[in-house]
């Protein structure tokens, strides 16, 4: 077995250039997913008529199927929908002019929404019921109480889960290479096949993902210390 170590370094540098796209494919879905998650959580906690079952199905289906399916379904299905609408409304717009990245972001946002809603809900349920009661007892509306008292505590409680989902999506973003996105994994494939050094290229990619994961964990640990200052007692 021969491993071309200098090539690993070269590959590292080459692949690393694709980091911005990986960050985009990781963060954009998480941010949109967070908003979707809040919406879904409100629907599920308030048991909004009509939407409740729909929200439950959304969460269950998206969590019950691989992210690859979400990407492929949106990537294949959304253009059909757009083209059909374009014909009906006589748009001159064509689905082929939409960059594939957009489909990836849409699909993964939906995925993230499902997972986020579970995290947010668990966080909210973990906040002591007495907190809500105390807020309402001083005359806050339910919305004010949720926004000012329950939600901030729920997010602090959820921080470890939010870190996990970030790392999860950092890794999930690698699937995007299947629809030819040149993020870290896509770039690795190109470097590997251009030089016919597959093992070296994937070692380099692994090192990058590993490094990013470790950094994310360290950052979370720091955040956790800051956010939950009120939980630690001791000196502020």
């Amino acid at each position: 077995m021969q491993i071309d170590i200098p090539f690993i370094f070269m590959a590292l540098i080459e692949i690393f250039k694709a980091l911005p796209l990986t960050i985009i494919i990781t963060l954009v879905p998480l941010i949109i997913g967070f908003l979707i998650g809040i919406g879904i959580t409100i629907i599920r906690i308030r048991k909004v008529k009509g939407l409740y079952s729909l929200a439950n199905f959304y969460v269950s289906f998206l969590r019950g199927t691989p992210a690859l399916m979400h990407i492929m379904l949106i990537y294949l299905g959304f253009p059909l929908l757009i083209d059909k609408l374009a014909v009906t409304f006589r748009w001159t717009f064509q689905s082929t002019s939409i960059p594939i990245l957009l489909f990836v972001l849409m699909a993964l946002s939906l995925t993230a929404g499902a997972y986020m809603s579970e995290i947010i809900r668990a966080g909210i349920l973990a906040v002591d019921q007495g907190q809500l009661e105390a807020a309402e007892s001083i005359g806050m509306t339910n919305f004010q109480a949720m926004r000012r008292i329950v939600f901030p505590q729920a997010i602090a409680i959820s921080l470890p889960n939010l870190c996990n989902i970030f790392i999860g999506f950092l890794h999930t973003s690698s699937i995007a290479f299947i629809v030819s996105q040149k993020e870290l994994t896509g770039a690795t494939n190109i470097v590997a096949s251009n030089n016919l050094k597959f093992l070296e290229a994937y070692i380099a990619a692994a090192l990058i993902y590993w490094g990013l994961t470790i950094i994310s964990e360290k950052v979370t640990a720091l955040l956790e210390k800051r956010v939950t200052v009120y939980n630690r007692g001791g000196v502020i």
């Binding site: 002591d128 007495g130 907190q131 008292i149 505590q153 602090a156 009120y230 939980n231």
Partner: peptide
């Protein structure tokens, strides 16, 4: 149980 707002 006092129910003070924990994060404040």
């Amino acid at each position: 149980q006092y129910n003070l707002f924990r994060h404040k």
